[in-house]
């Protein structure tokens, strides 16, 4: 058997075996999407698209589901998921925007401006940070940041201003965003650094030789050439931020509450819950079919947004690639 594997493979045989492996992966993904869709279907068929909207108290709707029997009535599926969707958009969106700005600027610094010795240390350290398990960030968040924010940052006045609706403990949107940003920035820096470093030096030098000052040359030529990689990094980071469950569920306060922009700065200290952390928080209640289907619907929503993200990234990159060399 080993002897057969060691002997040179014919093209046909290699093609078939490699093709089979890739087909297997493709099949697994398709099967998963189909399965999740089927499981989530009752939720959507009972709620329609208003499922995505707001209305009522989400916590009450979910506990109502847990109380229904194995054969739930149609009314048991009633849910308005907007607080979770809003929480997800807020945490992931703000973290990605912040992280992207930090990542682009620090990558430019590391690749173009930093002394060589610093660059040699910085790049491996950032790679290391990119691979830290997210639960470690969550632990630091709940043990360090949450008490600090709860005791020193939120003023008593802010606590009383919203005490009718929600309790401010420190577990909050702000902490979730900060930790999520810290978590996704290193991977973006690592990817963008690599892209910037692979921009041919001849372009940089050519721009400088045309009488452009070096910083302008970096922005106008190097960063411009690396734009597709910057988009790719942002897409990857957004996918990571959308799907982050454990860490967020540790620091987000676990309230099905949509932080209100109308509360001003206090908005940042309000608790929330995201789609991913809702799955973590409620997964032990899936004995109730209505809740089970609802959790699958959360999953389907995240799957679809991940697909939309990839397609969106591809479409954004298309015009940027127009002038790049293609093989």
């Amino acid at each position: 058997m080993l002897e057969r594997l060691r002997s040179p493979w014919s093209d046909r045989r290699a093609e078939l075996s490699l093709g089979a492996v890739s087909l297997l992966i493709g099949f697994a993904v398709v099967a998963m999407v189909v399965f999740v869709t089927i499981q989530a279907w009752p939720t959507f068929s009972h709620n329609g698209l208003s499922w995505l909207g707001s209305g009522g108290k989400l916590e009450e709707q979910i506990s109502a589901m847990q109380e229904t029997s194995v054969h739930p009535p149609a009314s048991a599926y009633h849910l308005r998921a907007w607080p979770l969707i809003w929480g997800t958009i807020l945490t992931a969106g703000v973290a990605v925007v912040l992280g992207l700005a930090i990542a682009v600027l620090s990558s430019i610094f590391i690749v173009e401006l930093a002394p060589t010795r610093l660059r040699r240390i910085a790049i491996p350290v950032i790679r290391l940070l990119a691979s830290v398990p997210s639960v470690v960030y969550g632990l630091i968040g709940i043990l360090v940041l949450v008490p600090f924010v709860g005791n020193h940052v939120i003023s008593p006045a802010e606590k009383t201003s919203v005490q009718d609706t929600v309790l401010l403990t420190g577990k909050s949107l702000g902490v979730a965003i900060v930790i999520l940003t810290v978590m996704i920035t290193p991977i973006m820096i690592a990817l963008i650094c690599e892209a910037l470093a692979s921009v041919p030096n001849a372009w940089r030098e050519g721009a400088i030789a045309l009488g452009v000052n070096p910083v302008r040359a970096i922005l106008a030529v190097t960063v411009r050439a690396a734009r597709p990689a910057i988009v790719a990094a942002a897409v990857l980071a957004t996918a990571r931020a959308l799907g982050e469950a454990i860490m967020i569920s540790m620091v987000d306060g676990g309230r099905d509450f949509a932080p209100r922009l109308s509360d001003g700065i206090t908005f940042l200290f309000e608790p929330l819950r995201t789609l991913a952390s809702a799955i973590v928080d409620y997964h032990d209640g899936i004995g109730a079919p209505a809740l089970k289907s609802t959790l699958y619907a959360f999953a389907l929503l995240m799957l679809l947004s991940a697909f939309a993200l990839s397609v969106g990234g591809y479409l954004i990159k298309l015009p940027m690639r127009k002038y790049q060399v293609r093989g």
Binding site: P200, A202, E205, G206, A209, A225
Partner: peptide
């Protein structure tokens, strides 16, 4: 330069 280096 020696190598043509038009920008992308």
């Amino acid at each position: 330069f020696q190598q043509p280096n038009p920008f992308p």
